[in-house]
Computed example of a mutant assay.
Amino acid sequence: MRAINDIKKYWGYMLYSAKSRLKAEVANSYLNWIWWVLEPFFFMLIYTIIFGYIFESGEQYFPVYIFIGNTMWAFFSKTISASVTMIRANETIIAKVYIPKFILLIIEMLVNAFKMLVSFGLTAIMMIIFQVPVSLHLLWVFPIMAVFVLVTFGFGTLLLHGGVYIDDLAHVITIFLNMMMYFTGIFFSIENRVPEPFCTALGVGNPVAFLLTSTRKAVMYSSAPDLPLLVAWFGIALILSAIGIHVIYKNENNYVKIM
């Protein structure tokens, strides 16, 4: 309840901070906000050429397939990377004004969520261009994305706390994310390309891979996700978030002293 009340209390500040960061990112660029469209588009183009044509991936509607994977991975990886160094990066603010430290993580997620929405807008346009059939299964995207955001927040809170005490954690997470990217199925289908039992292990034990695959199935292939597994990861994400918030509340007064 304390966390919910704090989110309500600081909601205005979070929105203002997120908007300010988005404006600051493009303030000195000639193309301004257009970069939020060009960046994911060019990444999709590069990955499509490399994996779709050079390595001859046979996934249906491959440009859309890549776009969904890269969009979701960018949200997760950028949030997780930032969470590790978040307290140290905001040391000046934290030392002067009290703010629940997980609020900083939510601000980062709002910034990345806006960029993800822009990319999903481009995905919708590409679905029209490539004539991807749409069904009511598309509505599964909303609960899937809710679990995806909660999973990211849960891991982010734990890493936010750990990053204060372990200086090398940022380097470890960078290596881990680079490795995890290839085990998440951004460029290929885990179900079709990875043999058993590794396929099942990745599909069940890697939440990003599971949720990414579920999103593609709902958006592109008119298929429902594995509902029991979706509920299971929702429960796990809730537990991780609760533990992370509890740990942050318990130790946040010591963060400035340690830094």
Rank of each mutant, 00 (worst) to 15 (best):
L238G: 14
L230R: 03
T184I: 02
K96Y: 02
L230E: 00
T48E: 12
Y221T: 09
Y30C: 08
G235C: 15
S214P: 12
W36Y: 15
N178G: 15
P143N: 06
T79V: 14
L15R: 08
F43V: 08
V134H: 09
F67R: 00
I243P: 11
I68N: 09
Y65N: 11
R2Q: 12
F102K: 02
S214H: 04
L227A: 11
M109I: 05
I245M: 14
G52E: 05
F187I: 10
L22Q: 13
L212E: 07
A113V: 06
P63Q: 11
W73N: 06
P143K: 03
A218I: 03
K101E: 13
G12L: 08
L45G: 01
L159K: 03
Y47D: 08
S57C: 00
P197F: 07
Y255S: 07
E91Q: 10
I68K: 06
L31D: 02
I236A: 14
V111W: 02
R193H: 09
G52Q: 06
I103W: 08
F62S: 08
L177T: 04
Y221F: 15
M14G: 09
W233P: 02
V141L: 15
V111M: 03
F155G: 01
V97M: 11
I166M: 14
I239R: 01
V204L: 06
F42P: 03
Y16T: 14
V247T: 12
I175Y: 04
A124K: 09
V164C: 06
V149I: 15
I125D: 01
S57M: 04
I46T: 11
N251S: 12
W11S: 15
I94N: 07
F62Q: 10
Q60V: 13
I49S: 04
V141D: 00
K257P: 00
M259T: 01
L15K: 11
S29R: 12
F41Y: 03
Y221M: 11
A209I: 05
F62A: 09
V151T: 14
N70P: 00
A24N: 13
F142S: 07
